[in-house]
Design a binder for these strands. Structure first.
Lengths: 136, 136
DNA sequence: GTTCTTGCAAAATATTTGCAAGACG
DNA sequence: CGTCTTGCAAATATTTTGCAAGAAC
């Protein structure tokens, strides 16, 4: 059993050929990808299959979704022991020049003091601007 | 000239009847609204007119958009002197129970230390969980 | 008349589902 | 066989544009 298969099994996902392909594709990315990106990257696979694969991965917390305001939801791999819980929250950076969206792992997301009665479960934190690769 | 007209003029927006209606509707809301919400709230008006009104308002920084991950972009009024600049960034709270999204004006958004080369211009910060009104 | 705004229709884009065929045990 | 997965087609939802008529000055 290879590394990817183990990853899927660890998340209770049946490791089919298609899912391994999608996982491999996701692993190769430095940026978050949309369903369309995935479709273009694995052009042999069907859109709805890919859609359902992403949903399965998300549900099992292998990937997380990011709504960066570009009109298409993007996805990125979670870290090994991520549970998509408050302590796993991190920022994302959407570069308005290259239009890529990255997970900012190195930036600590501050603990957020919410008004009384509000309970944080999840977050979608997107910073927009110019990324290091586009900045002159 | 009434208050709403002044608000529009202050933002360099031609105060037409339709725009005054939309502004009034937005002012009455405690939550961010989608294009669809607006359509249903002002059911006499055409969708594309409302769409363009929102775009105009956003461009002129009278309102800001929030992508809360529900699949539809929402909009909320900016504060009087908001320029949608980094210092105007604030959190939004999306309640997964009542499905409403609010601006969290009272919570200070922390200054974010980005890696070298990254330049913040904007942000879309959405916290998800249960809001104070839904919490038992 | 000229410019800005609006309404209607339709295009473009993104997301989601139904169903039947296939894979796998 | 029974369950899970995949592919195709199509539905749904959302956003966006073209164009002509109307309003404002």
């Amino acid at each position: 059993m290879n590394k990817e298969e183990k990853t899927l099994q660890h998340r209770n996902i049946n490791p089919t050929a298609m899912r391994l392909l999608v996982l491999q594709y996701l692993s190769e990315q430095k940026k978050a990808i949309s369903l369309k990106d995935l479709e273009e990257g694995l052009f042999l696979a069907d859109k709805s299959t890919l859609f359902r694969t992403l949903k399965t991965f998300e549900e099992k917390k292998l990937i997380h979704s990011i709504d960066d305001g570009t009109g298409a939801v993007k996805y990125a791999l979670c870290y090994e022991n991520c549970n998509c819980a408050p302590e796993d929250i991190h920022y994302h950076f959407h570069c308005t020049k290259c239009d890529n969206t990255f997970c900012l792992d190195s930036v600590r997301a501050p603990s957020i003091e919410l008004p009384r009665g509000f309970e944080l479960k999840q977050a979608n934190l997107v910073i927009k601007g110019i990324c290091a690769y586009c900045n002159p």
